[in-house]
Each structure stands twice: as structure tokens, then as C-alpha cells.
Simulated scan of single mutants.
Amino acid sequence: MTKQWLYVIDEAIKRIENDELELGLQALKKVQKHGKDLPEVMLYLAEVWYRFGHLDEAESLIRDILQKHRELETSLKQEYQMLLAEIALDGNDFDTAQSILYDLKEAGEESIRLDLLLTDLYSMQGLDEVAIKYLEMARQKDPGNKEILTALGNMYFQIGKDEEAMQILEDAGGQSVDLLLSKARVLAQNGDFEQAYHLYRQASAHEQSAEVLYGCAMMAFHTGHIEEAAGYVGNLLALDEEYVAAYPLAADIYLSMGKTEKSIDALEQYVELSGFDLDQIRRLVALLTQAGRYEDAKTYQKLLDQWSTEETE
């Protein structure tokens, strides 16, 4: 029976992912109605509710199962509790999450998942030093886990310990995209644009994501490789035309190439997408005026005046 219900859940997931939302939700509700005597099935269902953003449904189901099945196997009960803590964290209910996680810790639970949830708990409250302590615990349990090492390196960056961060990322070994991006970010923040550009280009050989292309374009621009920067930003906007941050950068690049009209086009698209950015509208007005497009400049000046008035009210 357990396998049959798990199969129904998997089929419901496929329905939802294929935009057959109502059919998928009906199937999940059917499982919840008829499978409550199967805690393993209900745990999977709660995870699915959580994955699709139905946090109240997931929390209600978990609490119902924990109330109904008081003699759950310890490991299964702990899985329920950790999912409940995860839901609380998503709702910024730090007190509930902390209570659950501390109870698990006192009960002797020592899993990596628990350490990572405690990391999230303290990181979300801005307590980075405490968060790092739990992330270090997770690292001790799985020293070669690149995701943990990358997260730990990034947290050390956040508290200003760049050398420790870089060493941790080096200890991770290999050159995964996440590690390359982590190194590139801190180098860029420290003004070492050439080395950052080198790492972004290495990352681009493995992955042509928007973040990678944006980093390549930004560092190429800062290091004077303008043609390359234009190529990267063009590829980025072809990949994701709603990547808002790319448009001001594109405007900078095109302006440095003497392509005022392309710079204006980029800023117009940026204003249309971003809605509210007075600095970029001022810049657009100046470029339109410089280009002799006075009527267009007046249009954006009116928008600028309107938003400036609203901002001061």
C-alpha cells in the first residue's frame, strides 16, 4: 500500500509540473485523506506540500501525524520535526524553529541536516558567528562536501575574514562553478578585477548562466576589455531579457564604445522594467538631450518630476 500511495504522489507532482494544477492537487488531497495511517507516506506528502509552497498544509499535516502517531520510530519522528522547523524558518518564526531544533539537539540528534538548519536559524537573524559554528560542525561530519564548504566560505566573506574564506574554498578542491563564483566575488569586492575576470571566464566555460555572464561583462568592462564586455552583456540579455541589472551595465558599455543610441535603448528598457530609479532616469534624460531627442527627454523628465514629488511627500 505504501508504494502505491508514493506512486500517486509522484504522479501528482508530474501533473503539477506539467501545469495540470487542479488534477495534481486533487490527487495530493486524496492521498492525505486516505493515507494518514502511513506515516512514511505522509512525510513525503508533507515535503511535497512544502516544496510547492503550501506551508500551512504541510505544517497542519505534520502536527496531525505527530499527534496521532505518538509512537513513531525515532528517526522518522525527527524527520518530521526538522521539516516542521524548516517551515517555521520560512515563516520567520524563529522561536518555534529554535525550540524544535534545540529539542532535537538535546535528544542526541547529530545529523548534518540539523546543523544546517541551525546555521539557517542564526544566519537569518544576523548572528553569523553562531551560524558559522554550526556550519563548521556540518563540515566536520562531511569534510569534502563542496556545498557546505562553499556556504562556509561565503559566510566567512560576510564577516570580513577573506583569508579564511579563500582557504576554505581552496580546501574544497576542484573548480566547481560555485567555488569559482565565490572566489571571483571577493576578488571583485577587493578591487582585483583582472583576477576576478579570469575566474568568471573559467566559470563561463562550465556554465552560461545569467550570473556568470553578468560577472564576465562587469569585469571585462572594468578591465578595459570593452568588446568582450559587449559580447557578454549581449549574450546575457539574449538569455534573460528581464535581468534588470544588465541594462545599466549595457548602457555603460555602449557609451564607452561611442554608441549613444544603444546606450539610450538600454536605459529605456531598464526604466520600463525597473519602474523606479531616479538616478537612471536622470541619466537617460541627459543622454536624450545630448542626442537632440528633446521630446523624448521631456517625457522622461515629466516622469522624473512626478516620481521626485512622490518621493518627497
Score class of each variant (00 low, 15 high):
residue 9 I to S: 00
residue 12 A to S: 03
residue 12 A to I: 01
residue 13 I to G: 03
residue 14 K to I: 12
residue 20 E to P: 06
residue 25 L to V: 05
residue 30 K to E: 12
residue 32 Q to A: 04
residue 32 Q to M: 12
residue 34 H to P: 07
residue 39 P to W: 03
residue 43 L to I: 10
residue 44 Y to N: 09
residue 48 V to A: 05
residue 49 W to C: 01
residue 52 F to K: 11
residue 55 L to T: 08
residue 57 E to Q: 13
residue 67 Q to Y: 09
residue 68 K to G: 14
residue 74 T to S: 07
residue 76 L to S: 03
residue 81 Q to V: 14
residue 81 Q to I: 13
residue 87 I to M: 05
residue 89 L to F: 07
residue 94 F to L: 11
residue 96 T to Q: 11
residue 96 T to H: 13
residue 97 A to L: 12
residue 101 L to P: 00
residue 105 K to D: 14
residue 106 E to Q: 06
residue 107 A to V: 11
residue 107 A to C: 12
residue 109 E to V: 13
residue 113 R to P: 04
residue 113 R to Y: 10
residue 115 D to R: 00
residue 119 T to E: 03
residue 122 Y to E: 04
residue 123 S to V: 06
residue 124 M to E: 08
residue 126 G to K: 06
residue 126 G to Y: 07
residue 128 D to P: 04
residue 136 E to F: 03
residue 136 E to A: 02
residue 140 Q to F: 05
residue 145 N to V: 00
residue 146 K to W: 05
residue 150 T to Q: 03
residue 159 I to A: 06
residue 160 G to N: 07
residue 162 D to F: 10
residue 166 M to D: 10
residue 167 Q to R: 10
residue 168 I to Q: 00
residue 170 E to A: 00
residue 170 E to T: 04
residue 185 R to I: 10
residue 186 V to K: 09
residue 187 L to F: 06
residue 189 Q to S: 05
residue 190 N to S: 15
residue 195 Q to V: 10
residue 195 Q to H: 06
residue 200 Y to W: 04
residue 202 Q to T: 08
residue 204 S to P: 11
residue 210 A to W: 09
residue 211 E to I: 07
residue 213 L to S: 01
residue 214 Y to C: 02
residue 220 A to V: 06
residue 221 F to P: 00
residue 222 H to M: 12
residue 223 T to C: 02
residue 224 G to N: 07
residue 226 I to M: 10
residue 226 I to R: 09
residue 228 E to T: 09
residue 231 G to C: 06
residue 234 G to V: 12
residue 236 L to Y: 02
residue 239 L to V: 08
residue 241 E to C: 11
residue 242 E to F: 14
residue 243 Y to A: 06
residue 244 V to A: 10
residue 244 V to C: 12
residue 244 V to I: 14
residue 245 A to Q: 09
residue 251 A to H: 01
residue 251 A to N: 01
residue 254 Y to D: 02
residue 259 K to R: 14
residue 259 K to L: 14
residue 278 L to M: 14
residue 279 D to L: 05
residue 284 L to G: 01
residue 287 L to K: 03
residue 287 L to T: 08
residue 288 L to N: 01
residue 288 L to I: 07
residue 290 Q to I: 11
residue 293 R to Q: 13
residue 295 E to P: 12
residue 296 D to L: 09
residue 297 A to D: 12
residue 298 K to F: 15
residue 299 T to K: 13
residue 300 Y to T: 04
residue 309 T to Q: 08
